[in-house]
Write a protein that binds this DNA or RNA. Structure first.
Lengths: 342, 342
DNA sequence: CTGAAAGCGCTTACAG
DNA sequence: CTGAAAGCGCTTACAG
């Protein structure tokens, strides 16, 4: 009930481990053990400490623990967007692994900006993280340097690295782009456009795959590419559909770099009376929930985003514990979802 | 270049403020001031410290700072979901205010569970947060007690409280539900169903508004309500559409508690050849991006979710600074978006 | 199994 | 404007 106030001036007023120890009649060290490594304490003292904790409503001070143990139990996660459900699914997978483990997950939103990523990482480094989860393979030189000098374990998510030493979990964005394009070619499409926004690393990789397939089939034509740096939205997809058709009137299929763009393109076709897929095939990337339900349903690439987060967190945790990774590269693959729109 | 290693055993190996001070030829205290309150230090020493910071790549240790200053600069945010873009927009607003201010935002996902909220809050309290942002007005008794005893400032988001002392930013979920229902009634609809999922606080408030409008118009009928506890998804909306029509064949309008459900209902109507809005009017809640673009476009309620986050963070920051709030209740309102589907 | 001592890296509260 | 001392609340590293 009554909180013992030390006579010194700087006490925070909160209940401390010493308060608990005093009430339990043990040394602070024993109280600490009873809480964190109960198996090392006799059951009698353990019970007395537990009761004191209850009675005082003791809440451990994480900052003090971090300082004394040189272990923050903080994991930093940097994602390019929170409005894109792809990344919230990744976060979900991460939290499902880490929340149970007394890790504190710090989520940073880089907004697809290298400069912002640098700024956030700089701030988050102050928390002395035990591990870091990043999206993508390429980062600014200063970010790379910060990561290297800190020696904190890092796992990259979404794509697979060429560097065998870099821990990563994802799938080949390039292969996926190529696979989707070949599918369209196999369906008899010849004038296949590529519509890309944001121009992030993954969009460019998918385009690389698109180019490879088109070149291999002898169908490549720079005119067929429409790339803009704006964020991907349904509204943008609708707009780009119009621009693509104006630019390439004989276009008979469009590979959108993601489902948001594709949804907008399909809706725009509906408004303009353009038959999908008869006159124009449209496909996307990621398989968002609406894609299976809209009319026509959307042909797209299913991506294991939840599992990417889950497995990346698992791999990071192992690295933090110093376990040798079973594999540094975890390829979770992708799935072509052939539906009505293409 | 060379890192001065103390002879004692527990040093972390990282560069500390003392290292900086030594290189700059000043006391640690002066180095601290030069970094945190540069205006209190002579420009000569300030420059020497700044250079030492650069040279050594000094990163302040947040845990040490928090411990010494009894100020964590941590803000805890608890949201019920990360897959619902409503809450990611709220988070966006929060981060736009707080990121600039050297606050560290801890994001917890309660998954619409009171028990989970309690667990998360309990863990996050270990970080001694300066302030807390919560969704909704009702919380478990233990959560209420933790908040009360901690005396940490709290701002509630999404709805408006009856308690004049409770800081909150949002709009009246009840009024919004009532307004949408009246709109349907005014359009001549009589057998208006209400379709609800998740059964969270806000869904129930919207239903209350629905009931009020239906009762006032003499149209109330318990058969018209279809409520399930499952998470809201497009797939669930499609399923519930079928169940509603089976249960109430003469149903001529459906008010879905959110846009996800409404999208699923509309898509299902398209698949079944049910004319929207002629045979059946459908409306939703939140005005997600797809709602304006789908065909038919969706009549729904626009909600100021980004601004809720932004203003709540602003209010919380003021409370942390001890400023008297201009107002404890900030009503941001809502907008009826009348479109094609109803 | 238990505990006294020292230290983690920073800031507060004083002095000068 | 500058700094020596003490302390924040915990854990490490030893002893017993």
């Amino acid at each position: 009930m009554s909180r013992s106030t030390s006579t010194k001036s700087r006490a925070s007023g909160r209940v401390t481990l010493s308060d608990v120890a005093r009430l339990a009649g043990v040394a602070p060290m024993t109280a600490s053990r009873a809480i964190n490594q109960p198996e090392l304490v006799s059951s009698l003292l353990r019970q007395r400490v537990e009761q004191a904790v209850q009675e005082l409503g003791y809440v451990p001070n994480r900052a003090a623990r971090a300082l004394a143990s040189a272990q923050s139990n903080v994991i930093v996660v940097l994602v390019p967007s929170l409005s894109n459900t792809v990344f919230t699914a990744v976060l979900q997978g991460i939290q499902d692994v880490l929340d149970a483990d007394n890790y504190q997950v710090l989520i940073g939103n880089t907004r697809y900006s290298d400069a912002e990523e640098e700024k956030l990482l700089n701030i988050y480094m102050q928390s002395n993280p035990d591990g870091i989860l990043l999206c993508g393979l390429t980062h600014s030189p200063r970010v790379q340097q910060m990561l290297a000098t800190s020696k904190v374990p890092v796992v990259s998510m979404m794509d697979l690295s060429d560097d065998p030493d870099q821990l990563c979990v994802g799938f080949s964005q390039l292969d996926a782009g190529e696979t989707m394009t070949r599918y369209l070619i196999d369906k008899g499409r010849r004038r296949i456009g590529f519509m890309g926004a944001q121009l992030d690393e993954r969009t460019l990789k998918r385009r690389e795959g698109y180019r490879k397939a088109m070149t291999d089939a002898g169908l490549a034509d720079p005119q067929l590419e429409l790339m803009v740096p704006d964020p991907s939205t349904i509204a943008l997809g609708a707009e780009l559909l119009g621009r693509m058709l104006a630019k390439v009137p004989d276009c008979d299929a469009i590979f959108c770099c993601n489902d948001d763009l594709a949804h907008g393109a399909v809706y725009q076709c509906q408004r303009r009376g353009i038959a999908v897929p008869e006159r124009l095939a449209i496909c996307g990337f990621n398989d968002l929930p609406a894609s299976a339900w809209m009319k026509p349903s959307l042909t797209t690439v299913g991506t294991p985003r939840y599992r990417i987060g889950y497995e990346a967190a698992t791999m990071l945790r192992a690295a933090i514990r110093g376990e040798a990774p079973a594999q540094t590269h975890l390829d979770l693959g992708f799935t072509l979802m052939a539906r009505e729109s293409a």
